[in-house]
């Protein structure tokens, strides 16, 4: 069930890429149809979703590279369902609201569909490495979307975005690797009780890496300066995806992995995190207002 959310857009991207002599409006139509199918599938999933159950639903588990602890494990719960839904919806809207006479349409629609895949995969993944793969996968198409279809300073903005998000990815990967190594687990599967045995000092270290990693993505002050540049330079549909779903990955990651894996350390840090959030809110609000006048 859930794999369809990931693979239908890939199918669409392949079809648009390989279809011989596809007219621009046809590639747009194809992208719209496939995004529409994904959206329909999401609605179907949401209707099948049982809100009374606590915990993951529609689980899928395939062994992939067992020695590495990487498995293709997906599931959906109350936290990821709305995010998956908004991802499918916004992808459709982004394609629908794209300029009809856009430059290099096939590549453009392929990249948007790939973003959909990456984000959906990251929201659904129940394996830490798998999450990381999708988290990085979504970065490449977005970089290209800003770098090719962006405004005048697109090169600067796209590179800044790429470097920032890559650093964020490295920190997250480091935290995941450290977590599995320290807890002696043989797989990267998401199990909330994994860290119970870890000493608090190690938990702080790992949570700190996650915090900075996802903090860049959210973005929290002072890691935020890539976002205004990216938003200004990206075209509107890309900005819709960026603000609507990609940034949500950061918050989602913090909730799912930061809070979910390190509840003890999280509880101790919670007041500081809240203060950090308040500072970010005020700083962002104050920094934003004069730009409009």
């Amino acid at each position: 069930m859930l794999s369809a959310l990931i693979w239908i857009p890939v199918l669409g991207a392949v079809a648009i890429g390989l279809w011989p002599a596809l007219a621009p409006n046809r590639s747009r139509l194809l992208a719209l149809v496939l995004a529409g199918i994904t959206l329909g599938w999401t609605v179907l999933l949401a209707s099948q979703f049982n809100a009374g159950i606590v915990g993951p639903q529609f689980q899928e588990d395939l062994a992939w590279i067992e020695p590495l602890g990487l498995s293709y494990k997906l599931s959906l719960d109350g936290l990821s369902l709305p995010l998956v839904a908004i991802n499918s919806l916004l992808t459709w809207i982004a394609i629908y609201s794209s300029d009809r006479s856009i430059h290099r349409p096939r590549l453009y629609y392929i990249l948007i569909l790939l973003i959909n895949t990456g984000v959906a995969g990251a929201f659904l993944a129940q394996n830490l490495l798998l999450f990381f793969l999708f988290y990085e996968l979504e970065l490449i198409p977005l970089y290209l979307l800003i770098a090719i279809w962006g405004g005048p300073r697109r090169g600067y903005a796209a590179t800044k975005f790429l470097i920032y998000t890559a650093v964020s990815g490295i920190l997250i990967l480091a935290a995941f690797l450290g977590l599995t190594a320290l807890s002696g687990s043989s797989s990267f599967n998401y199990e909330p009780l994994l860290t119970q045995a870890l000493p608090l000092g190690q938990q702080f270290l790992l949570l700190g890496a996650l915090l900075v990693g996802f903090g860049i993505k959210i973005p929290l002050v002072p890691f935020h300066t890539w976002l205004p540049d990216a938003h200004v330079e990206a075209s509107t549909p890309v900005s819709v995806l960026l603000a609507g779903v990609l940034l949500k990955l950061g918050t989602y990651g913090l909730l799912r992995f930061g809070l979910g894996l390190f509840p003890e350390a999280w509880a101790i840090w919670a007041p500081w995190l809240a203060s950090w959030a308040v500072v970010s809110v005020l700083y962002g609000a104050f920094g934003e207002s004069p730009k409009k006048t």
Partner: peptide
Amino acid sequence: FHWLKVADF
């Protein structure tokens, strides 16, 4: 309707 359940939250 349960939305998110993590640890005792």
